[in-house]
């Protein structure tokens, strides 16, 4: 009793906390702040087949309860990652989750077949069907049920690695898309990526972001994420991983009650790099005081 261990499908994690893709790079920087082995896992910066320079101009706009970013998937490309960062991630003592992004089904298939060659160094592939900052990009695939089904089925044939599908919240019916991913062979669903937003500079009457729009993250999006986790968990048989605005241990518990088996921390790390250390300590206190296993909270929500 009193453990914070959790499981996502067959994958056992020593903590429900996973660093969210795009907010921890490949772990080099944050490992100078704390021992990352306290985490359940680390999800890499979103990778593409070829290197991407990302968007030009201003990439961040602050809001009252969070921020918008339009980085545009700047990344060194999968080959550079395999050469320079994959082995490093394996030294961190936490689960290695590789975030995979693309523009087309062919991109995803190419990435998954390449990464599957390194399956002994990878614990899960997180398929990013949700980046809002790339034109004609992955969010458009993640918004169409049939396309989600097609891309997940195609990847499923190529790997035995757990496939976690990270979905965009910028859709009308998240349940049907999550369900389509499950039926096509997904092992878990990650909810949610950023919400598409815009911030306007009232002096210039132009968007702050040079990409005009960006992905909204931070505490402001948490209620949306909680709602989507609860909705999807009620119809899925595969695990859900919660993500969106986690700043405290209570947020983690809220996500788990809603139905999450594990919880990602993203923007919180940008504000306080050692936030996961504090949340881990608080979760350990919580399970001790309540004499429960944290995993027993998952899906205990009682709707009115």
């Amino acid at each position: 009793m009193s453990s914070i261990n959790v499981k996502v499908g067959d994958l056992a994690l020593n903590s429900p906390l996973i660093l969210a893709s795009g907010t921890c790079n490949f772990g080099h920087e944050l490992s100078s702040y704390y021992d990352l082995s306290i985490l359940g896992g680390l999800s890499s910066k979103g990778l593409t087949l070829l290197p991407r320079l990302g968007n030009e101009g201003c990439r961040v706009a602050e809001t009252e309860c969070g921020m918008l970013n339009s980085v545009g998937l700047q990344n060194p490309g999968v080959e550079s990652f395999i050469k320079n960062d994959l082995d490093y991630m394996n030294t961190l003592g936490t689960k290695v989750i590789i975030n995979v992004a693309g523009h087309s089904i062919e991109d995803y298939v190419g990435m998954v077949s390449r990464l599957d060659q390194f399956s002994s160094k990878i614990d899960a592939l997180e398929i990013n069907l949700s980046c809002p900052n790339v034109r004609a990009g992955c969010m458009s695939i993640g918004s169409e049920r049939d396309q989600v089904s097609e891309v997940v089925s195609a990847m499923r044939k190529l790997t035995k690695l757990p496939l976690w599908i990270k979905l965009t919240p910028n859709v009308t019916d998240i349940k049907s898309i999550a369900y389509a991913a499950q039926e096509a062979g997904a092992d878990a669903i990650v909810l949610i990526n950023t919400l598409l937003g815009m911030v306007i500079d009232i002096k210039t009457r132009r968007p702050v972001l040079h990409n005009n729009t960006g992905g909204y993250s931070g505490p402001g999006i948490k209620p949306v994420a909680i709602r989507m986790v609860a909705e999807c968990a009620s119809v899925l048989s595969i695990p859900v991983i919660g993500c969106g605005g986690v700043m405290t241990y209570e947020d983690v518990i809220e996500f788990m009650i809603a139905g999450a088996s594990a919880v990602q921390i993203g923007t919180g790390s940008l504000v306080h790099p050692t936030l996961p250390v504090k949340i881990t300590e608080d979760l350990i206190d919580y399970v001790k005081k309540n004499d429960i296993d944290l995993s027993s909270l998952t899906g205990t929500l009682r709707m009115w």
Binding site: N25, H28, E29, K45, E56, C58, V60, V71, V271
Partner: peptide, 17 residues
Amino acid sequence: EQRMACGIGICLVCVCK
């Protein structure tokens, strides 16, 4: 100088060319 978020190199918003 660029608009920054994390300041420690993990978010990639403050790039210059």
